[in-house]
Design a protein around this nucleic acid. Structure first.
Length: 254
DNA sequence: ATGGTTGCCTCGCAA
């Protein structure tokens, strides 16, 4: 079994303790991190090494930044989304433990007036790249913070998000097009009727009230989906102090 | 109660 998790860490250095504690406790093999918010040189590579993980990092000062930590060797690292000239650090991919695993931080897209276009352009390029990975015998995993509320039930109060870029019809359509290439949504395949969230506002009381959004996802090509055994969200880290506003999403492959 | 929180590295922006 391979345990893969995606976790928007909202600054790896600010929340390192929670991340490393959770990584060990959950016995994760491969962790996809978004919003590390630091350059490569400031990423705590040695701390991950001591915990038994190799890292591939695409950093950026202050904003964005993505990294992969794996108990296994990381090969053929791809930094940046192929086919898109982008100065923001939002995509990194590596081959590890017999899988090709891509880690994406899709643009938030708000405010819609000025930033939705970039989000849609990004998703279009992502879909084009995903299309090249859907077929064949090689297992391909695409996980990350998609910044997409796929369905109304994925928000505690969808009325607040009707005009938001997270639930915008064009954004939902772009995500759906990716799924329709032949990808399986790992969480939904295992829990078709569950209500679960991967993000909670830092505003007081939101976690306890379970007022969140499901915006982090893991997609599997058919070869990977054949091996899907379990998936879930771990809300426990969100109860801690000095923690990200996101929680990890996990899937297990045979 | 027209608010509420966090990170970055500066007092504004992004989420």
């Amino acid at each position: 079994m391979v345990k893969i998790a995606t976790y928007n860490v909202n600054s790896i250095n600010a929340h390192l303790e929670v991340v490393l504690d959770w990584l060990a406790a959950a016995d994760i093999d491969v962790l996809l991190m978004q919003e590390i918010k630091c350059e490569w040189g400031a990423f705590p590579t040695m701390m991950f090494k001591q915990a038994g993980y190799n890292c591939a990092v695409l950093g950026q000062k202050s904003y964005n930044g993505v990294a992969i930590a794996s108990k296994f060797k990381l090969d053929n690292v791809v930094s940046g989304l192929p086919g898109l000239a982008d100065d923001q650090a939002r995509f990194i991919q590596a081959d590890t433990c017999g899988l090709t695993i891509a880690n994406v931080y899709v643009p938030n897209g708000n405010p819609v007036e000025t930033k939705l276009d970039y989000k849609l352009e990004y998703m279009k390029a992502l879909n084009k790249y995903a299309a090249s990975k859907v077929n064949g015998s090689a297992a391909f995993v695409l996980g990350g913070d998609f910044n997409v509320i796929i369905e109304d039930r994925d928000a505690y109060d969808i009325a607040q998000y009707r005009t938001n870029a997270l639930a915008h019809p064009s954004v939902r359509a772009a995500f759906r097009q990716c799924c329709n290439l032949g990808f399986t949504n790992a969480f939904r395949a295992v829990h078709p009727d569950a209500v679960a969230y991967t993000w909670y506002s830092y505003s007081r009381g939101q976690v306890m009230a379970d007022h969140g959004l499901l915006i982090d996802h893991i997609l599997l090509n058919p070869s990977a989906a054949d091996r899907l055994r379990d998936a879930g969200v771990d809300k426990s880290v969100r109860m801690k102090s000095n923690t990200s506003d996101h929680v990890p999403l996990i899937c297990e492959l045979a």
